[in-house]
Design a protein around this nucleic acid. Structure first.
Length: 388
DNA sequence: CGTCCACGTCTAC
DNA sequence: TAGACCTGGACGG
């Protein structure tokens, strides 16, 4: 679950779970990890982490002599850290740091899809802006001082994924943030942000003549504030357990979502092919010729008797939550498909069909399948060794 | 069994 | 503005 909050939580997890541990040896890399070998070795060292947006920096600090080493990770779609017994590491562990404990444990960078990576050194990726979580003021100023950037010519929902300005915002956060203000996702970014800037200036004037007690309360948070507070909510909601993949966190997270993937909400593909979830009007810059779909309550989540007819209208998980009283959330139903325009320019449909994918059945999922190694047998499947 | 979908970047017609 | 890069879970036949 890697957007800003998950990176922040990973950093906290590492510091809390590993802060008191002593590590030893080198960093063991899997054959297929998307990152370089780590030129570091120490009989006794500590680990410390810090997150910034969608990056996480790990520092390896020798207790005795030796130079420290820093690494900067990106999680891609599926990356994360786990502290596990070294003898039974998770599948897809691509980098491991071993503790000096008697049965040793390993802090593992785990990443099933391998879109994540790491680099040597402590430099953040140039071009990524300040973190929406940990550098709120700098983040806000960076946006408001650069509204002439063509990045803000785009719809607000697309601008929100631009890590030069919104480092840490990802696909679920953009939906949740826009939903809180009911901003149409395809409203032009600059329009939204100029208005916000204007309000800010008016507010400043007034505030200067107000008692301090009135200044402090932000009762109508603007979009940029929500870019900070909404991800902070996720950090708070998932703070439980020192185990990133325990079920409670997942449940808390699903419960927390108000819009992203929630039954009754609408969705569209944006101009980059990413799904944006929203409620209400899509806004003026919405892609043409696309049907905005509404999510029905899924067949799962329906613990009814086998015989019953469907009727599973009501949204499941968000059963309670007295949200959106005003708007007619989901009224008649039936009017699902909700088209927008005919669709003569019916192109772009293609969802990238995997053509390649040689190796119909590679014996070792983790092995560098590389060349056209076709085997007609060897059904590997699960249970494989983690291949580190 | 198969198809579609996924919390993110990258680079190449 | 399409793919490419990957694995795996959900769901359908």
């Amino acid at each position: 679950m890697p957007e800003g909050p998950e990176l922040a939580l990973a950093g906290r997890y590492i510091n809390e779970a590993c802060g008191g541990l002593v590590f030893s040896g080198g960093a063991e890399r899997s054959a297929v990890g998307r990152g370089p070998e780590v030129p570091f070795r120490s009989e006794a060292y500590r680990l410390g982490a810090a997150a910034r947006g969608k990056e996480l920096r790990l520092r390896l600090e020798p207790l005795g002599a030796g130079s420290p080493q820093a690494l900067v990770f990106r999680f891609g779609m599926s990356g994360g850290f786990r502290l596990r017994p070294a003898a039974s590491p998770p599948r897809h562990a691509h980098l491991r740091f071993l503790t000096r404990e008697s049965p040793p444990r390993a802090l593992c960078f785990v990443d099933a899809r391998r879109f994540g990576s790491w680099r040597l050194g402590d430099a953040w990726q140039p071009g990524r802006g300040p973190c929406v979580l940990s550098e709120y003021q700098a983040f806000r100023e960076n946006v408001l001082k650069n509204l002439d950037d063509k990045a803000f010519d785009k719809p607000i929902c697309e601008a929100l994924l631009n890590q030069k300005y919104f480092n840490g915002i990802g696909n679920y956060l953009r939906a949740e943030i826009l939903y809180r203000l009911k901003i149409p996702p395809f409203e032009k970014a600059r329009t939204v942000l100029e208005a916000l800037k204007q309000q800010e200036q008016e507010r400043r004037k007034k505030n200067s003549s107000l008692p301090l007690s009135k200044k402090l309360k932000r009762d109508n948070p603007d979009l940029l504030e929500l870019c900070h507070t909404v991800p902070m909510e996720v950090v708070a909601a998932e703070k439980n357990l020192l185990d990133p993949d325990h079920a409670d966190n997942h449940t808390a997270f699903k419960n927390w979502l108000q819009c992203y993937g929630v039954p009754g909400m609408s969705s569209l593909r944006d101009h980059n092919g990413r799904t944006i979830w929203f409620q209400g009007e899509p806004g003026p810059m919405a892609p043409k010729g696309q049907k905005s779909r509404k999510k029905h309550a899924g067949p799962k989540a329906d613990p009814d008797a086998p015989t019953t007819e469907v009727t599973t209208r009501a949204s499941k998980r968000r059963s309670r939550r007295a949200e959106n009283p005003a708007t007619s959330a989901m009224k008649k139903e039936e009017e699902e498909e909700e088209e927008a325009v005919p669709d003569p320019p019916r192109r772009g449909r293609a969802r990238a069909r995997r053509a390649a994918a040689a190796a119909p059945a590679s014996p070792k999922p983790e092995a560098p399948v590389k060349a056209t190694r076709r085997r007609a047998s060897a059904r590997k499947g699960a249970g494989a060794a983690p291949a580190v």
